[in-house]
Amino acid sequence: MSLFLMYLFITGLLCFIFIRNHILLCLMSLEFIVLYLLFMIFIYCLMYDYSFYFYVLFMTFFVCEGALGLSVLVSMIRSHGNDYLNSLMLW
Rank of each mutant, 00 (worst) to 15 (best):
84 Y>S: 13
77 I>W: 06
49 D>V: 09
66 G>Q: 03
83 D>W: 04
30 L>P: 00
87 S>E: 14
31 E>R: 01
89 M>R: 02
41 I>S: 07
44 Y>E: 12
40 M>I: 04
17 I>K: 01
60 T>L: 11
20 R>I: 03
8 L>C: 11
76 M>H: 03
39 F>W: 01
32 F>T: 01
53 Y>W: 11
2 S>E: 10
55 Y>C: 06
40 M>C: 10
64 C>W: 00
31 E>I: 01
77 I>C: 05
65 E>M: 14
17 I>V: 13
32 F>D: 01
20 R>V: 03
77 I>V: 04
14 L>C: 15
8 L>A: 02
51 S>P: 04
24 L>V: 07
69 G>W: 03
28 M>D: 00
10 I>N: 07
54 F>R: 06
63 V>E: 06
70 L>V: 05
88 L>C: 09
91 W>F: 09
54 F>N: 12
27 L>Q: 06
77 I>R: 15
62 F>T: 03
30 L>M: 14
23 I>H: 01
7 Y>P: 00
9 F>T: 07
31 E>Q: 05
14 L>Y: 13
62 F>M: 09
72 V>I: 11
12 G>R: 07
19 I>H: 10
66 G>E: 04
35 L>G: 02
70 L>T: 01
24 L>F: 10
6 M>G: 08
85 L>I: 09
66 G>F: 13
7 Y>I: 08
37 L>W: 05
36 Y>L: 02
56 V>Q: 15
52 F>Y: 15
23 I>V: 10
44 Y>C: 05
